[in-house]
Design a protein around this nucleic acid. Structure first.
Lengths: 136, 136
DNA sequence: TTCTTTGCAAACCTTTTGCATATTC
DNA sequence: GAATATGCAAAAGGTTTGCAAAGAA
């Protein structure tokens, strides 16, 4: 047996670095979605500068591990935010960007069923709702 | 009164060119979604070459006028297809890209309801299902 | 000491734009 | 002939990658 700290998923262990802590802390503080570039900028302003490439790599890793939630905006930019955890979707205001987190058991099941009916396995889905919120 | 051919929407009239006809014809022939780059390549192979920039510009115009349907893939690329019309969603194989068109009255309603419940109006949504198809 | 992470700059890719030329109306 | 469309090449963005140096375990 070994003494190494390897995740059960076989991925290499992630090391705790100033940069990762800074990114995680920032994401915890803020509410909405942020792009890698925005985070990079906000970190710089906060005097806790992190290389842009590192921000990208970290965000990717965090998204893969499920620690953050990444979606792609209309103009093709990836934006992330810390997810409360668990699987959920968003209702986003087209105007002001306000987002409401929604759970959707109904739709989850529907997605599974549809996929299975068509012979697809290992089904996943992407669902985002848009609209104009009451303030806009 | 004037004799000009201006659309009722006030946009400048679109001229009929070989390039536009070629793109439209190609989109009519094929089934799935294609990126601007793919179309550009397929046109070139068919000996009906069209400049890449023109493909981009044309697809944009067609999408705006509602003649084609454009969605953004997971990796941020825009893909288009002639829309059969009507609203629908897709079940896409993660491996081979095979797509099945699905209708989803259930989910449509759900989306409306959820949006309304949260005070959002003018609701729309984006729903894509993924999985591994039976061949993969 | 070993293996991972960082930073920087260069590379990538898709998409957009400027401008002279060609085309449609 | 006037206005729009095309092509090309260059510019823009956002994102990724190679590599040497720094840092965690």
């Amino acid at each position: 047996m070994s003494t190494e700290t390897t995740s059960s998923k076989g991925r290499p262990a992630q090391r705790v670095t100033r940069q990762r802590l800074a990114i995680r802390a920032l994401l915890t503080d803020i509410d909405g979605f942020r792009s890698a570039q925005q985070l990079h900028e906000e970190l710089r302003e906060a005097g806790d500068s992190v290389g842009l490439a590192t921000v990208y790599r970290t965000l990717q890793a965090m998204a893969e591990s499920g620690e953050v939630d990444g979606i792609r905006t209309d103009d093709g930019e990836m934006v992330y935010r810390q997810c409360s955890q668990g699987h959920h979707h968003h209702l986003v205001c087209r105007e002001c960007g306000r987002t409401v987190e929604i759970s959707a058991k109904l739709v989850e099941q529907w997605a599974q069923t549809v996929a299975t009916e068509h012979g697809f396995r290992d089904a996943g889905h992407e669902i985002e709702l848009f609209g104009l919120c009451s303030d806009c």
